[in-house]
Design a protein around this nucleic acid. Structure first.
Length: 114
DNA sequence: CGCGTGACGTCTC
DNA sequence: CGAGACGCCACGC
């Protein structure tokens, strides 16, 4: 037929990774943060943290990527505006940041279970 | 369809 | 504690 599979890759299982990242990031409430590895794990691959970073860099700007930090609470240098911008956006939401690292990350880390 | 890549993570020194 | 090196894997060309 005329339709073919085009690029196919419409298999939810595979493209799901990137889409899930978008959905999860969009679900992070204000004042809370998630780590790249955490997002990756929830997407199905705890070792795909780097992939989440790459997706974040190229992902939609309307998503709260500022709520995505490293596992230890470290901010992302590649964030639009750099560490300063990232820090400013997090503090704006009430997240305490010191030396470009989220303070008490264990308390502000958010999980979809909540 | 293979290679390089990177907003990470973990180990070692 | 801090910095450096390796590994890991989805994504784009």
């Amino acid at each position: 037929m005329h339709q073919k599979n085009l690029n196919n890759t419409f298999t939810e299982s595979k493209t799901g990774f990137r889409d899930r990242v978008y959905l999860l990031v969009g679900q992070i409430p204000s004042g809370r943060v998630m780590s790249y590895g955490q997002l990756a794990a929830l997407c199905g691959n705890p070792r795909a943290a780097r992939i989440v970073g790459g997706i974040a860099h190229h992902g939609p700007e309307h998503l709260p990527w500022q709520r995505v930090v490293k596992k230890g609470g470290g901010l992302a240098s590649g964030y639009y505006g750099g560490l300063e911008g990232h820090k400013a956006d997090l503090e704006r939401e009430g997240v305490i940041v010191t030396d470009y690292k989220v303070v008490d990350i264990g308390n502000v880390r958010w999980w979809p279970d909540e």
